[in-house]
């Protein structure tokens, strides 16, 4: 014991005093969080496998093979085949590609749009705030499902199916982020360093981008991870109902929707259990990562 403590005390002062930015401190905390690290590893694996699907497998996903319909898992088809004779494992990979693309793209659009609206409303206040926030309320009040169905019908054939879904989800989804960012900006701008920034001659745009946003970024990042999970669920939910990604494109939601057939549900579990499991684990790991980031960015938590 004694040797150990001696060693420790000797080691600490020899390290050069290095200034760590708040981000570096958060990164260190995050790396120490085991659950978050395992989740990140899992998510990364899923992402890499999905996006590199064309390089992992050469099987054509759209080809219907009548000779190999409804086969249980085997050496040739790891997870069996579905009712049209398509390989479930390959579809799972390509499906992940679509589901994750929808999730990432929709999250990015929502975060950018919500942050812009929210920070402008929060910083300028007054009439600008009222107008933007009433607009946000209006968007938040839109019946999501009805709007998705209508827009899908209008845009069908004009835009490729996946992007229609992304645009529709994002257009309706930014309200929450805008409100959150606005409220954070409202409280953050009361700090004296904002007054100080103005008093050294910073323009409003510079105050918002350089001084306010970095200070609310932690909230936005946490919100973005949660949104990412929500967006994947939204895609799956809509696809399951038949309003999401066009049926010929594989996505986790579309794969799950085949289980609406009682025969598939009962007799072919290999076609719907894998997407269900992967979907659940992905969302769970995203949420763990979100929690990890939240902890890491919270100066009051020591893990």
């Amino acid at each position: 014991m004694e040797v150990l403590t001696e060693k420790n005390t000797k080691q600490t002062p020899s390290k050069p005093p290095k200034s760590m930015s708040p981000w570096a401190i958060a990164r260190r905390k995050f790396v120490r969080n085991k659950l978050a690290m395992v989740s990140s590893f899992f998510l990364l694996t899923v992402m890499i496998m999905s996006f590199l699907a064309p390089y992992i497998t050469t099987i054509d996903i759209t080809r219907v093979n009548i000779g190999q319909m409804s086969l249980p898992p085997s050496g040739e088809h790891w997870l069996g085949t579905d009712k049209s004779g398509r390989d479930v494992f390959v579809r799972l990979l390509y499906g992940g590609r679509v589901s994750l693309t929808v999730g990432i793209a929709a999250t990015a659009l929502i975060v950018v749009f919500g942050t812009v609206i929210g920070s402008i409303a929060g910083y300028f206040g007054g009439v600008v705030d009222s107008v933007l926030m009433r607009f946000t309320d209006f968007i938040l009040n839109f019946p999501f499902l009805v709007f998705v169905i209508v827009l899908n019908a209008i845009l069908f054939g004009k835009l490729s199916g996946v992007w229609v879904l992304i645009v529709v989800i994002s257009v309706l989804g930014w309200g929450g982020v805008a409100r959150l960012v606005r409220s954070k900006i409202l409280s953050e701008k009361e700090n004296e360093y904002i007054l100080a920034a103005i008093s050294i001659g910073c323009k409003p745009s510079k105050v918002i981008i350089k001084h306010l946003l970095p200070n609310v970024l932690s909230t936005i990042i946490v919100q973005a991870t949660i949104l990412f999970a929500t967006m994947i669920v939204a895609e799956s939910g809509l696809s399951y109902l038949g309003f999401g990604v066009p049926t010929e494109v594989p996505s986790w939601g579309n794969m799950l929707s085949t289980s609406r057939d009682p025969d598939v549900m009962q007799n072919m579990p290999w076609t719907w259990i894998p997407p269900a499991v992967v979907l659940t684990l992905t969302i769970l790991s995203i949420n763990f990562i979100g929690e990890g980031i939240k902890d890491a960015l919270n100066p009051k938590s020591y893990r």
């Binding site: 930015s21 700090n191 004296e192 360093y193 007054l195 100080a196 200070n215």
Partner: peptide, 9 residues
């Protein structure tokens, strides 16, 4: 304590 921005050097 509050008149310097915490995220910049």
């Amino acid at each position: 304590m509050t008149s310097l921005n915490p995220v910049f050097t």
